[in-house]
Simulated scan of single mutants.
Amino acid sequence: MKILFPKFDKIGMPLLGVAASVLFVLEAKRQLRRRTRPKTKRLIQNASVAVTALPALRLLLVPGMYAAARWANRHQFGLMPWLKLPTAVRYGLGFLLLDYGNYFWHMLMHRSGLLWRFHNVHHSDMDLDLSSAWRFHVGENFASVPYRGGVIALLGVPAPLVLFYEVIFEGCTAFHHSNLRLPYAVEKQLCKVMVTPRMHGIHHSIVRQETNSNYSVIFSWWDRLHQTLRLNVPQDEITIGVPAYRNPSEQKPAHLFRMPFEKPRAWVLPDGTVPEREERPSPTILLP
């Protein structure tokens, strides 16, 4: 299985590094939500989780997805070869369908008890910022290989597109996890097309119906299509995290690595109450 991708590593990864550096500075200057935990401690804890997840992403997930695309391309397998589309259309449609497939993967991680055990490590972060974009349990990256590779094979998308999409995917993931306060008027229009920090902040709420919304990764269209879009929650009313995991001492890396293998907790706060919010009208209109 091929693991070296010169353009991906020499162009794509440095571009992602620059984008992350810019977001890191901007989110410190234009903070969207007030922090609840010490920044440095969180950065160390999240980096400790990412130090295993990122190598799995680069050395297993990316090569696995590329291998699936190469196999499909060699055997003229999948939707794209069957449709016999012009090259430009094949790349454009393929990009959209890859993103659509990841919408369903994200939804599945919330609806499958087994997958949620691993995804919960990401959601149990009690603040949301750039570092949250890489706080994923290594087991989640392993689990995503057969799904994402299978979708790629069924679509039959060109192998180079897989690498290009992954760079955009990672960049957008960093962007919408950031704690960057964009001008409200700008973000209100931007979220009609793509996932933004305010939109994704709602997805990380401790209110269950808010967590189970806004599954899109790049384009917000998929949530609109499937009526899972929720934008009408003011940012200053959001509590980030998972209600049963509010103890800062459980944010230590050793516990985060063990979390998927422990008995799942009910969706309640430590005092036994269920976080709720009165439903507002117009869920597709972004509130500040």
Results as ranks from 00 to 15, higher is better:
9 D>G: 09
19 A>K: 04
21 S>H: 11
23 L>D: 03
23 L>P: 00
26 L>G: 05
26 L>P: 01
27 E>N: 08
28 A>G: 15
30 R>A: 15
32 L>H: 03
34 R>F: 15
40 T>N: 10
43 L>R: 05
44 I>S: 08
45 Q>D: 14
50 A>K: 04
53 A>K: 00
54 L>W: 11
62 V>G: 00
66 Y>P: 00
71 W>D: 04
72 A>W: 02
77 F>R: 01
77 F>E: 03
84 K>A: 15
84 K>D: 14
87 T>Y: 13
88 A>F: 14
88 A>D: 15
97 L>Q: 03
98 L>S: 01
100 Y>R: 04
106 H>V: 07
108 L>F: 14
108 L>C: 09
109 M>H: 07
113 G>R: 14
114 L>N: 08
115 L>W: 09
115 L>Y: 07
123 H>N: 08
128 L>E: 01
129 D>F: 04
134 W>Y: 15
137 H>Y: 08
143 A>S: 10
143 A>P: 00
149 G>V: 04
149 G>R: 01
154 L>P: 01
155 L>Y: 05
157 V>E: 01
159 A>Y: 09
163 L>Q: 07
170 E>P: 00
171 G>R: 03
174 A>L: 14
176 H>V: 08
179 N>W: 04
185 A>P: 03
193 V>C: 12
195 V>K: 00
196 T>C: 06
197 P>C: 11
198 R>Q: 13
203 H>M: 10
206 I>C: 02
207 V>Y: 01
208 R>W: 12
213 S>G: 09
214 N>K: 07
217 V>F: 02
225 L>S: 07
227 Q>M: 13
231 L>H: 02
243 P>K: 04
245 Y>P: 00
245 Y>L: 12
252 K>L: 11
255 H>G: 05
256 L>C: 03
260 P>L: 06
261 F>R: 07
263 K>P: 02
273 T>C: 06
275 P>V: 10
279 E>H: 10
284 T>G: 04
287 L>K: 09
